[in-house]
Design a protein around this nucleic acid. Structure first.
Length: 619
RNA sequence: GCCACCGUAGCUCAACGGUAGAGCAUACGCUUCGUAAGCGUGAGGUUAAGGGUUCAAAUCCCUUCGGUGGCUCCA
């Protein structure tokens, strides 16, 4: 099945460690599933005309979708939550019953969504959770509690008192719109989210964790740390990087650029617009046209803002004759691209309309494909490993066999997909295979990370492509003198610099490792008469490449320390008379550890060492 | 794009039909202090924009713009 964010935590095995018990088999799962039924019962009391759709457990809770006669209000929600608790306390059993299709149809007269589900079960199309089923369902079953009966396979708790009325909430999250069966062409329903735990303490803990998570949201920290901003006058989804954010970004880019050079990548640079014909040749137009900005008319030609860098790199490849001896040929570029994302899809730095990919395209012979692919995966592992990021999952995106949005013939697709799966197996990389997640030109391996609100975002990607080389008629001269077609690997490790920075901000909660911190040391002269000494120390640190700020304000030292802590600056260097006399700085770490007075050179050596080693520690 | 909610000073928020306020930040003055925020004064807002209702609108209604939570779609 498709795993969408917020659903099915069972497979979300971020660190590859097998979970001791599957979520679906847990008591908590049954509690949440049962809570969804109670929610539906209470909602039907509040809105007797409501149409009911589906209500599954999800990670962290459950939901139920309704078609309502009017907009639901906060008062409605509160009423329903209170009513749910009453129903729970009445201790109604959940009664299971198998029924015939006709009984099912009769039960749900006037409930068109349920009737559609019944027909799909009877005809073997989809089950009630939207999963494809090959055969007609063996049986149709109901669960009934109190006055409410639902089409359902279970499992449930024995009676409603299996749910703790003090450990449920449907008011913690606003209702949302959701399309029937996830199809934007079908009716939009009102989705009520709820959560349930076994104890009130667990619920409170969950709600508290949610509040804490919001504090490390990259949008909040981006404002607080002066990293980036947006302006409606510039345009939504178009990031303005402030000096501190640009410094962070620059540091990341420089680091990766050096790593690329070490690994035999060659830099290339390409423009931000191109003739529409380029994208017609590549197939990006029209396959991708819904996410592209409208063409720009220039004289009698049409140009388009660059939505991806691949065709440009291909034209560089095509500008020369290549020998097999040159391959793998690796072109890399920080390529800024522009994509028209629907307005409701934009989110902070994770989803924007203009972003920079750490893009590269590698041209290989068939023999080289597997090994080169594995090298890219190892490269990704090295990059995130350096940052201490271990929580990600690998997703092999293959073609959806029922969709027509893919180019190229089946044999090539299958060959490419099996190469990717082979590479994962060779590397011992746990992965899921998900149909429908491929690029239009080929299957791919994506590295998916979660933000602080547990939403999934694709970052690094490695894609195998036989199609664009064919469309552009790419060639290399083989050992035997014949012309052969290279295979392309599209790859990005950060994915986009914007999204990667967002994930980093949240991962570190704004307290970046020293080497990434926009300001690495804050110099705090205790009084005005120490400013001169602070400036001389600052010069020494800058000479060793350490990024410093001198707080020469008239604030008290304590206030300067507080400000430095707020900014999560790794090293706070306090200096007063004693330090000026002895040539020392009093070092206080971001962690509040006090290292006492150190000779300036000693501190510089320590800090420079931490920075150059990209250590996650501060000493 | 769709459903819902929201938009008050640079930031975080208050006032919720009756003349727009606080803290932080900023400017100026006082203070010159040894490890989590010294004191004072000033400046800063046609309450996102436009329209409507009302004797009176930040507050109620409509439109547009922007944001948030979802859905859809994606790096």
């Amino acid at each position: 099945m498709h795993i969408r964010h917020g659903e099915c935590p069972c497979d979300l095995n971020y660190d590859g460690v097998a979970m001791s018990q599957r979520y679906e088999d847990s008591r908590l799962y049954r509690i949440r599933h049962s809570s969804a039924h109670v929610l539906a019962e209470a909602m039907l009391e509040r809105f007797p005309e409501a149409l009911i759709a589906i209500g599954p457990p999800i990670e962290d809770g459950f939901y139920y979708d309704f078609s309502l006669p009017r907009t639901i209000t906060e008062e409605d929600l509160q009423w329903v939550e209170n009513r749910m608790k009453e129903i729970i306390r009445a201790n109604h059993p959940f009664k299971y019953r198998e029924v015939t299709p006709d009984e099912a149809r009769a039960q749900f007269q006037g409930q068109p969504f349920k009737l559609e589900l019944i027909e799909d079960l009877v005809n073997g199309r989809e089950d009630e959770n939207g999963n494809r089923i090959a055969e007609p369902a063996a049986k149709i079953s109901f669960y009934t509690q109190d006055t409410f009966t639902d089409l359902c396979r279970g499992p449930h708790v024995e009676t409603t008192s299996g749910i703790n009325p003090d450990a449920i909430s449907i008011t913690f999250k606003l209702p949302a719109g959701a399309y029937w069966r996830g199809d934007e062409k079908r009716p939009q329903l009102t989705r009520i989210y709820g959560t349930a735990f076994e104890t009130k303490e667990e619920l409170d803990e969950y709600l508290h964790a949610l509040e804490e998570a919001k504090k490390r949201d990259h949008r909040i920290l981006g404002e607080k740390l002066d990293l980036f901003t947006f302006s409606p006058l510039v345009g939504k989804g178009l990031t303005l990087w402030k000096p501190a954010g640009a410094m962070l970004r620059h540091t990341l880019e420089t680091w990766l650029r050096d790593l690329l050079l070490e690994r035999g990548y060659q830099p290339v640079v390409t423009p931000h617009i191109a003739n529409l014909n380029l994208y017609k040749t590549s197939g990006h137009y029209p396959y991708y046209s819904s996410s592209q900005y409208a063409p720009i008319q220039v004289d009698d030609e049409e140009f388009m803002l660059k939505p991806m860098n691949c065709p440009h790199h291909i034209m560089i490849y095509k500008s020369d004759m290549h020998s097999y001896r040159e391959l793998p040929l690796r072109y890399s570029e920080y390529g800024t691209v522009y994509r028209y994302e629907k307005s409701g899809e934009l989110t902070g730095l994770t989803r924007v309309r203009g972003f920079t990919q750490d893009d590269a395209h590698i041209f290989v012979t068939p023999d080289q494909l597997l090994n080169e692919f594995k090298e890219v995966v190892r490269f990704f592992q090295f990059v995130v490993g350096t940052l201490g990021i271990t929580e990600f999952r690998a997703r092999v995106g293959t073609r959806d066999p029922e969709s027509d949005k893919y180019v190229g013939d089946d044999a090539l697709w299958d060959g490419a997909a099996s190469a990717i799966i082979q590479a994962c197996q060779d590397l011992g990389l746990p992965h899921t295979v998900e149909p429908g997640e491929a690029a239009f030109y080929g299957p791919k391996l994506d590295f998916v990370l979660r933000d602080v609100l547990k939403r999934e975002w694709q970052l690094g990607t490695v894609q195998v492509d036989y199609n664009l080389p064919a469309r552009f008629e790419l060639e290399y001269v083989a050992e035997d003198g014949t012309r052969k077609r290279p295979i392309m690997i599209h790859r990005a490790l950060f994915g986009s610099v914007e999204r990667f920075v967002a994930i980093l901000i949240e991962h570190f909660a704004g307290a970046f490792p020293a080497w990434l911190s926009p300001i690495q040391a804050l110099l705090i002269p205790i009084t005005d008469r120490h400013v001169e000494y602070a400036n001389s120390v600052a010069d020494k640190l800058r000479a060793r490449g350490i990024r410093v700020d001198v707080d020469a304000s008239k604030n008290r030292m304590q206030a300067k320390i507080a400000a430095g802590r707020e900014r999560h600056i790794p090293y706070l260097l306090i200096m007063g008379d004693r330090d000026a006399q002895n040539g020392t700085v009093s070092v206080r770490l971001r962690t509040d550890e006090d290292l006492g007075a150190l000779p300036v050179d000693e501190f510089v050596n320590m800090a420079a060492n931490v920075i150059s080693s990209k250590s996650l520690e501060l000493k």
